[in-house]
């Protein structure tokens, strides 16, 4: 969507002075909120707020057949819904390329870091648990990728694995969490506008930015990257973004650790 002309001039003016609408620095996040378990009927759920962006992730486990090449392992299926209530820019209908990219980028970081122990999702021959992660965007104000990863990661880490008895899934008390590798993946997304590279672009900044790059990492390494939009980055700008990611992801991880109780 187009930014209003007066907003555009205002935002550019602020960037020229080295600041942003929410009086933060170029490598700062907006206020982050993370709450768990709002939906107790889901196996896991988490709501992430980044400024006015509000994203809800729900996890359900379903009994399914394994993939042919991995007969002993469950699967991870990540989907996103850009709900029409979240912004006038979204409409009902089949998933847009934006929604598909969003789902695949969140999925890629979590998958590449082997967060879920997919072998522990094995039930019996030809039966495994499929982990469905659905990310609902309730309010859009930029940076869905980081908010989505935060919500999905937290929902997965706290998701309970149902029991399988007499051909059915049993969801009762006393279930334990699905087995994960103890790591936490978060992502840091940067937008480039007026030649500045900004962490956590808000909605107005996203409408003005020419390019976007997302870097997902865990404690050890980069796990996924995705550059988007028509603008370009220099190699040096990406390297700088990687440095900021390793620094800022510590805060994101500590937020996740705090809410999941570690």
């Amino acid at each position: 969507m187009q930014v209003k002309v007066n907003n555009r001039e205002y935002i550019s003016g602020l960037l020229g002075k080295g600041t942003r609408e929410t009086t933060r620095g170029f490598s700062d996040y907006r206020k982050i909120g993370l709450t768990l378990g709002a939906l107790p009927q889901a196996e896991g759920s988490a709501m992430a707020d980044m400024g006015d962006t509000k994203v809800l992730a729900g996890v359900k486990l379903g009994v399914g057949t394994p993939l042919q090449d991995k007969p002993g392992e469950g699967t991870l299926i990540t989907s996103t819904e850009l709900l029409p209530m979240a912004s006038p820019r979204y409409e009902t209908g089949p998933p847009s390329p934006d929604a598909i990219e969003f789902a695949r980028v969140v999925d890629r970081g979590i998958r590449a870091a082997n967060i879920i122990d997919t072998k522990a999702l094995f039930i019996e021959e030809d039966k495994v648990w499929n982990v469905f992660v659905d990310i609902y965007v309730l309010n859009y104000d930029g940076n869905l990728f980081d908010a989505g990863t935060l919500a999905a990661m937290s929902a997965i880490l706290t998701a309970k694995q149902p029991r399988f008895e007499d051909g059915a899934a049993i969801r009762d008390n006393g279930l334990s969490r699905i087995k994960t590798n103890g790591k936490i993946v978060t992502s840091c997304t940067f937008g480039k506008l007026d030649g500045h590279v900004l962490l956590d672009p808000d909605g107005n900044e996203e409408d003005m930015m020419s390019s976007r790059v997302t870097i997902a990492n865990d404690e050890g390494a980069i796990r996924a990257m995705q550059k988007g939009l028509r603008g370009a980055f220099s190699v040096e700008e990406v390297e700088k973004a990687i440095d900021v990611t390793f620094e800022r992801s510590k805060e994101l991880r500590s937020i996740v650790k705090k809410v999941i109780g570690e």
């Binding site: 890629r108 980069i222 996924a224 990257m225 550059k227 370009a232 220099s234």
Partner: peptide
């Protein structure tokens, strides 16, 4: 795996994707 697209006149990065595990040094 890291696919990358480049504009050769200035080596601008036009596409960058990655999944797996990579350090910053390996990226460079």
């Amino acid at each position: 795996d890291m696919p990358i697209a480049i504009a050769p006149r200035n080596n601008d990065v036009l596409l960058l994707q990655m999944d797996g595990t990579l350090t910053k040094d390996e990226f460079a």
